[in-house]
Simulated scan of single mutants.
Amino acid sequence: MTPLIAIAAEAAEQKSAEVTDWAGRLGWIAGLLLFVVLVYWLMRQGWKWRGSLQSDLPELPTRPSPTTTLNGGGKPPQPGMPQAPGEAKLTLSGRYHGSTTAGQWLDRIVAHGLGTRSRVELTLTDAGIEVVRPGANDFFVPAAALREARLDKGIAGKVLAEGGLLIVTWEHGGEQLDSGFRSDRAAEHTAWVEAINSMIKTTEGIAR
Results as ranks from 00 to 15, higher is better:
residue 2 T to E: 15
residue 5 I to T: 12
residue 5 I to P: 05
residue 6 A to I: 13
residue 7 I to P: 02
residue 7 I to M: 09
residue 10 E to V: 06
residue 12 A to G: 12
residue 14 Q to F: 12
residue 14 Q to G: 09
residue 15 K to R: 12
residue 16 S to A: 15
residue 21 D to C: 11
residue 21 D to V: 13
residue 22 W to S: 12
residue 24 G to K: 13
residue 25 R to A: 10
residue 26 L to S: 14
residue 30 A to V: 12
residue 30 A to G: 08
residue 33 L to S: 12
residue 37 V to E: 09
residue 39 V to A: 14
residue 39 V to M: 12
residue 41 W to H: 11
residue 42 L to Y: 10
residue 42 L to A: 15
residue 43 M to F: 13
residue 46 G to I: 11
residue 50 R to E: 10
residue 50 R to P: 11
residue 55 S to H: 11
residue 57 L to F: 09
residue 58 P to R: 07
residue 59 E to L: 12
residue 61 P to N: 08
residue 63 R to N: 13
residue 64 P to F: 01
residue 65 S to W: 11
residue 68 T to E: 13
residue 72 G to N: 07
residue 72 G to L: 06
residue 77 P to G: 04
residue 78 Q to D: 14
residue 78 Q to M: 14
residue 79 P to S: 06
residue 80 G to D: 06
residue 82 P to V: 00
residue 84 A to I: 12
residue 84 A to R: 09
residue 84 A to S: 14
residue 85 P to L: 06
residue 85 P to W: 03
residue 85 P to R: 02
residue 85 P to N: 01
residue 91 T to I: 10
residue 94 G to T: 04
residue 96 Y to T: 07
residue 99 S to F: 01
residue 99 S to H: 05
residue 101 T to L: 15
residue 102 A to T: 08
residue 105 W to C: 07
residue 106 L to D: 15
residue 108 R to K: 14
residue 109 I to S: 03
residue 110 V to L: 00
residue 112 H to Q: 14
residue 113 G to W: 03
residue 113 G to L: 05
residue 115 G to C: 10
residue 116 T to E: 10
residue 117 R to M: 10
residue 118 S to M: 05
residue 124 L to M: 06
residue 131 V to W: 01
residue 131 V to D: 02
residue 132 V to P: 03
residue 136 A to H: 05
residue 141 V to W: 00
residue 141 V to N: 00
residue 142 P to S: 06
residue 147 R to N: 09
residue 147 R to W: 07
residue 148 E to P: 01
residue 150 R to G: 06
residue 153 K to V: 05
residue 154 G to D: 14
residue 154 G to V: 09
residue 157 G to D: 04
residue 159 V to E: 12
residue 161 A to D: 15
residue 162 E to N: 06
residue 162 E to I: 02
residue 165 L to M: 00
residue 166 L to M: 04
residue 166 L to R: 01
residue 168 V to Y: 05
residue 169 T to K: 07
residue 170 W to Y: 04
residue 170 W to K: 05
residue 170 W to Q: 01
residue 172 H to K: 02
residue 177 L to Y: 04
residue 180 G to A: 15
residue 181 F to T: 06
residue 182 R to F: 01
residue 185 R to P: 05
residue 186 A to M: 11
residue 187 A to H: 09
residue 188 E to P: 03
residue 190 T to W: 06
residue 193 V to W: 02
residue 193 V to P: 00
residue 195 A to Y: 02
residue 195 A to K: 01
residue 195 A to N: 05
residue 196 I to M: 02
residue 198 S to N: 08
residue 201 K to T: 13
residue 204 E to T: 11
residue 204 E to Q: 11
residue 205 G to I: 08
residue 206 I to R: 13
